[in-house]
């Protein structure tokens, strides 16, 4: 049976379900809009570890073990771990998974990795290759700053279009067994889209066309209109990228403004001075795991389209004056 629909989408035959989800965040996120929903808030940015990178590893490990614990299973029941982060060679993920001791596939989709890992995990489960998949991502503001931008103590002024990398991690435990939990019903795998923007400070605007492309293709492939969903969320387009996505969809003749939100605009308060919102792998992950999935389980949200957005540049590529290639993957969760 062919589960592929249209050009880029998958409709799962026996939709895998979300057994449990867990989140951990840094102190700044812990003072933000979703403060009440996170499982754990660190007291400082180091989490009692001696480097930012170790702190990030600790967070992803904590989120993954907690998701497993919440579902009442043990790590032994997990058939595969799918995870990734923003650091070179997936440093945070690899050191975290080392101690979890389960079969592991590392994924890199920059900030789209949460959606990517959910899609690959759902494919594995729907294909009958296992019973449980653990999918998770992490990012750390200071670890990302020192890799992509400047040392954290350098006195620089950030342009207003920049976004603030989220310190945090989120993990989802997917199961193949049927139950009364949110189901992963469809997915649309994105293509790399590059509209030629070069400013690494403006990642939301660079990623919005990729999100538009994937959303458009999802609608074509599945025949669902934007109004089909209670909520469409993108990962980390930020204030500016969000406005641009609405404009691009409007040009295509689709109005999404009624039921569209961006995770990057749901984390920080205005006075926290994050500028254009949140970004990073954890931006979409902590909103999905702490807020959206629990809302679905509580029956307040029935049909969700989750679009992870990633900007695939590197420090080398922007120093060589290349433009920013971007990607977006969509996955629908339904009760």
């Amino acid at each position: 049976m062919n589960k592929k629909h249209g050009k880029q989408s998958i409709v799962f035959a026996s939709p895998p379900q979300v057994a449990a989800a867990a989140t951990i965040v840094g102190p700044m996120e812990g003072e933000g809009l979703l403060a009440a929903y996170y499982d754990k808030i660190l007291e400082d940015n180091s989490g009692d570890q001696d480097s930012w990178e170790k702190c990030e590893s600790y967070m992803i490990e904590w989120a993954m073990s907690t998701a497993v614990k919440k579902s009442g299973l043990t790590l032994e029941d997990v058939d595969y771990i799918l995870a990734g982060d923003l650091l070179n060679q997936l440093m945070a993920t690899h050191f975290a998974i080392r101690s979890l001791g389960r079969p592991f596939l590392g994924l890199y989709g920059a900030c789209s990795t949460m959606a990517e890992s959910l899609i690959v995990g759902a494919i594995l489960l729907d294909g009958g290759f296992g019973g449980h998949v653990l999918a998770g991502v992490s990012s750390h503001h200071d670890a990302a700053e020192r890799q992509y931008r400047f040392p954290t103590e350098l006195g620089v002024q950030r342009p207003p279009v920049t976004q603030w990398t989220v310190t945090g991690a989120g993990a989802v435990l997917l199961k193949a067994m049927a139950g009364n939990d949110p189901r992963v019903t469809t997915a649309t795998i994105g293509k790399v889209v590059d509209v030629g923007l070069k400013d690494p400070n403006a990642m939301g605007p660079a990623m919005a066309p990729a999100a538009a492309e994937t959303l458009w293709q999802h609608i074509q492939d599945t025949g669902r209109q934007p109004a089909y969903y209670d909520l469409i969320v993108t990962g980390d387009l930020g204030v500016v990228g969000k406005t641009l996505l609405i404009q691009v969809m409007q040009e295509k003749g689709l109005d999404i403004s009624a039921n569209y939100q961006d995770c990057g605009c749901m984390i920080y308060r205005e006075e926290q001075d994050s500028h254009a919102g949140a970004s990073g792998c954890a931006s979409s992950a902590v909103v999905l795991c702490s807020h959206l999935i629990p809302q679905m389980k509580a029956g307040k949200l029935n049909k969700l389209l989750f679009i992870g957005t990633g900007s695939l540049h590197s420090t080398t590529s922007y120093q060589q004056k290349e433009s920013i290639p971007c990607i977006a993957h969509a996955v629908s969760l339904e009760m």
Binding site: P159, P160, V161, V195, G196, L197, A202, P205, P209, V239, V240, T243, L244, Q247, V248, A276
Partner: peptide, 12 residues
């Protein structure tokens, strides 16, 4: 798209 972006780009 670039024109749209320049329109909504926040000014310092």
């Amino acid at each position: 798209y670039e024109a749209q972006y320049n329109q909504v780009k926040p000014k310092p």
